[in-house]
Design a protein around this nucleic acid. Sequence first.
DNA 1: TGTACATCAGTGAACGCGCGTTCACTGATGTAC
DNA 2: TGTACATCAGTGAACGCGCGTTCACTGATGTAC
Lengths: 230, 230
Amino acid sequence: MAQGHRRRVHDATLIEIKQAARRLMAEGGTAAVSLRAIAHEVGMTAPGLYRYFRDRDDLITALLVDTYDALAETLEAARAAHASEHYADQLTQVGMAYRDWALAHPVEYRLILGNPIPGYHAPVAVTTPPARRSLAVFLALLHDAWRDGELTLTDDPAPELEARLAAFRAEAGLGELPLSALQLALATWGTLHGLISLELFGHLDPIIGDAGPLYRAALAAAVAPLHPRR
Amino acid sequence: MAQGHRRRVHDATLIEIKQAARRLMAEGGTAAVSLRAIAHEVGMTAPGLYRYFRDRDDLITALLVDTYDALAETLEAARAAHASEHYADQLTQVGMAYRDWALAHPVEYRLILGNPIPGYHAPVAVTTPPARRSLAVFLALLHDAWRDGELTLTDDPAPELEARLAAFRAEAGLGELPLSALQLALATWGTLHGLISLELFGHLDPIIGDAGPLYRAALAAAVAPLHPRR
DNA sequence: TGTACATCAGTGAACGCGCGTTCACTGATGTAC
DNA sequence: TGTACATCAGTGAACGCGCGTTCACTGATGTAC
């Protein structure tokens, strides 16, 4: 109990530190994430942070992992909230949740999918699993739709990709899901990410203002193979 | 002549400075672009640079504009080199040139389409026109194909986008090009940019290795409305 | 329950570093008579 | 063609700043007897 109390205080402070870092990031971009600024935000001095993180990279890694997880949990929740609807509707909801999360957390979105932080090198072993969770939501959805005979695929996968896609399918535990479904998932991810990325960096606003309708239209096209059979 | 000589030396040094900046960027990312590092690379001291640029932002703006222009010129050249082929092939070539340029100049691609440089604010009036040139290549291609009856559009544009697309069409001098063609161009841009962006930031490599086949397949799908009538 | 000890959070000073920018300056180059 | 002057490129020292990290330390908190 007493020993546990110390640990609990430690864990609470650690969470507080990460929250402060996220707050600074939201205000001033990833460049604002400095140990000194975070310490000041939390109400301590910079060296005190070394009780919680080995060094700056360690702190950034923690932020990365948390962010990957937060995005994935949002997507999982979006699907779960519409689990009784058609797969096409589920995918639409997940796709919209993806953009909504990105718009609500622009700096965090950039942190995980944009330029790397200068001087920071991610320990891929730690970073990759949570990074996969978001893609896994899309893949699981396609897998379930295929299992239930609700996925209509017209094209074959690109021949040069077959071996790689098969390896990834096995690694991701996707059974016999057609490889063209995997390719479709990756291409769709590319489209959604591309539009969001253009939007976040201000490239679409001067052209069409709100990028929402364009995104919705692209998402609708991506969802087509899942439309319920007539 | 004498006066002109001084100006010519000045201009040559200015070009040399920008080249040095680009070299440093290629080696160490945008974070490596500091006045001191550039000056050292060129063989002078940092204050000397103020003879060529008002301040750091001014230098970055110059790099941005040069980079936008270089990309646009590459795309224009790619189309020109295949001007006698079908529009579908032209678009394929331009799309491939887009990715090839990005892979050959990853840091410059990030500079114009990725995270903004910390603390830098672009003067949009200077920056927007060259930024539009690349998109204009795609739009001009679609416009010419439509004019020649080689563009088959199935969908209507998203209703919420019509007004914006019409305004942009007028601004871009695209005549009566169907609005759904504009929407198609933007969505295609999103897809290509999205895949390139995922590739450059290392998100695709652990999944499928070389992202080329995936990109080519996505590009082939985007080119479909331009396929020559049978 | 009381006391000696170990653990741990956090401090404050200091390290060396690189940053953009200013300032007064030197010396070379071109201009005007 | 020769000379006085103005222009301009570039220097070197200095400004104040913030950075990550180390170190020896203080004081509070929990542990063991």
